[in-house]
Simulated assay, not measured.
Amino acid sequence: MNSRYFTEEHELFRKSFQEFLQKEVVPHIEKWEETGTIERFIWEKFGEMGYFGLNYSEEYGGLNLDIFYTVIFLEELQKINSGGFAAAMWAHAYLAMTHLDKEGDHRIKEKYLAPSISGEKIGCLCISEPSGGSDVAGMRTTAVKKGDKYLINGSKTFITNGVYSDYLVVAAKTAPELKGKGMSIFVIDRETPGISATKLNKLGWRASDTAEIAFDNVEVPASNLMGEEGKGFPYIMQHFAFERLIMGINAHARAEFALDYTLKYMKEREAFGRTIDKFQALRHSYADMASEVEMAKEFNYSIAERMHRGVYVVKEASMSKLLSTKIADEIIYKCLQFLGGYGYMEDYPLARLLRDSRLGPIGGGTSEILREIIAKMVIDGKEYKPAAK
């Protein structure tokens, strides 16, 4: 492990988290993959162990630890071969909860953030819509103010934890005529009348509940507005840098898992009188893949370190997600090929890993969108700035 970023305390945390996952999570993964439902008890166990509060304030039950504890959390979740379970955990802890932490007032943090840290409440973030996922500014969901309430109408889709969460962090247009500048963020209780969710059937991430959500004249108290009205777009853009880095870290971790598994297989699998790790064509291909993962990992660690220092790393995080997810998909594809017919069998981990990995270049901003965002920065000289506080 690279000691430039990780201390002995980090490594002790990694070991204890690995042991927790093997004991408390892995025995249930196959069931959750089949049912598409992660049982509530595991959320509570994560909360009891403090895993949802790694980077949050002690005032609300968090541990206020540095970003590399989060990096470890993300990496190890990728190595139990359930992208859906991992997504449910990090979408709760770093998508929904990030908005509560950064834009929520004290009342909202006490009501939603504290029980999210303890695992008593599950959250989801609702941004993408059926009419357009990556086009955030073009969203059509509206929030019209009526006295001391907002009336929300519209729909969201591809929402992780969208079926079983207890609350929803929702982006909606409070001033549609202003386009991106007319967007605001709300937190809404699941049981609020007018909310309905439809579970989506996915290629991968099958353990997680991904939903299309409809809002039909949903009344939300004005006090559930988070941050300033009309500032929703810069809030979302600011947090996208973190989400993209998360996706990049996830990618290098699952690629590393694929390589580790494949190497063990190569050392045991015999063909033509010797184990296949002795065949030059496979050895050199493996060397190329290991080099790519090491480069992606080092780049992602350096971005995390800069983010920890308060640098706005939207360019680097976008590059991380673009390249790391591409590398992961290519490596997992090749690793499956190394296993031959066994790679295609569900009894081996590569088939699920291939399906789960394929969402990397899609979720959190497609690779096509990221290329244009990066092009604007490196070719046109465009500067993206954090939301004003």
Rank of each mutant, 00 (worst) to 15 (best):
R4H: 08
F6R: 11
F6H: 14
E9K: 08
E9D: 14
L12K: 15
R14V: 04
R14Y: 02
F17S: 00
Q18R: 15
E19W: 04
E33C: 06
E33V: 08
T35K: 14
E44C: 01
K45P: 02
F52K: 01
Y56T: 14
E59T: 13
L63G: 00
D66C: 14
I67V: 10
F68W: 05
L77A: 03
L77M: 03
A96F: 03
H99V: 02
E103C: 11
R107K: 02
A114V: 00
P115N: 10
G119D: 01
C124W: 04
V136M: 07
T142L: 09
T142R: 12
V144L: 11
V144F: 03
K146D: 15
G147V: 11
Y164E: 08
Y167W: 01
L178H: 11
S184D: 05
I188D: 05
I195E: 08
K202E: 13
D216T: 03
V218I: 07
S223H: 02
M226L: 06
E229K: 06
G230V: 06
I236H: 04
Q238F: 00
F242N: 14
I246L: 13
G248W: 05
I249G: 06
N250D: 00
A251E: 06
L259N: 11
M266P: 07
E270R: 07
A271Y: 15
T275N: 07
I276G: 01
F279S: 06
Q280V: 15
A281N: 09
A290F: 10
S291M: 15
E292R: 11
E292L: 06
E294M: 12
A296D: 04
F299G: 07
S302D: 15
R306E: 14
R306K: 14
R309Q: 11
G310D: 09
V314I: 10
E316S: 05
S318D: 05
I327H: 11
K334T: 15
L350I: 15
R358A: 15
L359E: 04
G363Y: 11
G364A: 06
G364M: 07
G364F: 11
S367W: 02
L370S: 09
I374E: 13
A375F: 10
D380V: 06
K385C: 04
